[in-house]
Design a protein around this nucleic acid. Sequence first.
DNA 1: CAGCGTCATGTTATAAGATAACATCGTTGT
DNA 2: ACAACGATGTTATCTTATAACATGACGCTG
Lengths: 132, 132
Amino acid sequence: MAEHASINLTKNQALVFDALSKADGPLSAYTILDVLREHGFRAPLQVYRAIDKLQELGLVHRLETLNAFVACTHPNCETHETIAFMICDTCGRVDEISDSMLAERLETISGKSGFSLKASTVELRGSCGKCG
Amino acid sequence: MAEHASINLTKNQALVFDALSKADGPLSAYTILDVLREHGFRAPLQVYRAIDKLQELGLVHRLETLNAFVACTHPNCETHETIAFMICDTCGRVDEISDSMLAERLETISGKSGFSLKASTVELRGSCGKCG
DNA sequence: CAGCGTCATGTTATAAGATAACATCGTTGT
DNA sequence: ACAACGATGTTATCTTATAACATGACGCTG
């Protein structure tokens, strides 16, 4: 899995990305560290440095309300795109959405105030369909 | 200032709220602690507990992307309302917006996926009009 | 009044998240 | 070969947040 993107990744980056890809929910940096100890990880920086690169590549997203990270579910996610996350507080699943009308609305709101929008964070909390 | 709301506040809550109200930007919990040391604050919990209550009352908001807090700029902000924050990365000012079309769009997006929306976090990063 | 519950407070310690600073190693291009 | 660059490893530290436990203030109720 995820071979299409991991080709250019270094060993550590690939390990972190695989850990996130295999997880069925967001992982904290320290959880990733624990998962990868058996692969030689010893320090948080090994995780954070890999995550930094993966975020630049758009392969990983940070969930601000959870202090955790998820592998991008879109094939090749653009960094500058407006993305919203729906986070189920019951089962922990995260759904990633790209909605153009939402993006437009955020631009409109910003524009009204003369605000030059560079990045947006949208995180929705609630219960997913299954957990209702 | 802020007398209209601080009537029901305890001493610590009022101190924290005043500190945030006087600041011209978001403050971290530990910055608040330092500011209030001269008023007898000694430990982080005194700040965090006050903040918890102030958030429940809708008087204070947490900025997830900054790990910091601001006093609400709306007279009596409802807790359940959808609020967006525009954060200027240059001058640090934060503008709080309540936009019904944005709220509707978030509801629509959620609804499509059968997601029951309970709370939303929207934080926009960029440059404000003055910093352009 | 006494006893009880509840909420705010105070204090110490610790958990959880993130970065600084410095050394080493491997690859690439000249 | 060697300089430049990027990735890695390691230790220590900083920032953010909470656990656990004790005390004090207040109102309610018997």
